[in-house]
Amino acid sequence: MKWYDRITSIDRRIIYMLLTVLVILPFFVNVNIPQKIMPQTQRLFDFIESVPPNDKAVMISFDYSPQTMPECHPMAQALLKHCFARGIPVIGLSFDPEAPGLALDALTRVVHEFDSLAAGKDDSLIYGVNYVYLGWKSGRIAAQLDMGESISGVYPRDYFGNLIETLPLMQKVNNYKNIAIVVILASADYPIDWIRYPQTRYGVKVGAGLTAVMAPQYYPFVQTGQVSGLMSGMKGAAEYETLVLEHGYARTLGTAETGMNSQSMIHILIMAFIILGNVGYFFSRRGKRKGTHE
């Protein structure tokens, strides 16, 4: 077998083994490459920066599943840290049935981190005052449209069974007029429904945090201003974490930054194998033309 045939027929298991090693390597070898902040991530950050504290709330739609947790969970935590540090109230909800567990986890972690640094009760985050989690609701588009008239009409109770009217935050927030922006953290096509329906009808601002595969689909909407900002995949999460850290809203970077090192390694590996495959392909074709192919 000629060398160019060998390099085009490498056993898949070798590829898989190399991939595994390179994913794990950055966890033992500390490499820290600074992130260049993409404009769309900066736009989302700047938008949240422009929301006055204790005024309108930020609505976060947690719509990702455990499969995309590595990409979307760091986004959720970075966004929550940003909002809480700026005194912006947060209303969470979900339309993906697999999401509530992860939404609760993100909220719990960030609230716990803030409360552990709080000097007193005034500095801590109080459920019902600083944040509310409404839970999962069926009939996604219908619910999104109906919230334009009244959020309590769609969610008479929150995730924990509390009546909405008993929560101080929800007494101030009736519908989208009291919402500064809805940020959808999703691994599926949920943001497009927010743009098509509530935004068209009620003018609510929409932001998104999406997996890297889905994000390019929303670049046209970022360009037209229909999406006010976008976090794209683990890189977007790492960028937002960096921005939150640089502005003093967090004390450490999150998990996305570490994950980016593994991702970069894999990109290099894939590029190397593509080059190998193409080199073998070209020489193999040349060999066939010369009639020297076995």
Binding site: P97, S138, G139, R140, A142, A143, E149, G153, V154
Partner: peptide, 15 residues
């Protein structure tokens, strides 16, 4: 608004 609420209920029954 009534229709949207009916849709929410129907979708829950689909589950």
């Amino acid at each position: 608004s009534v229709i949207y609420k009916w849709i929410i209920v129907l979708m829950a029954f689909a589950l």
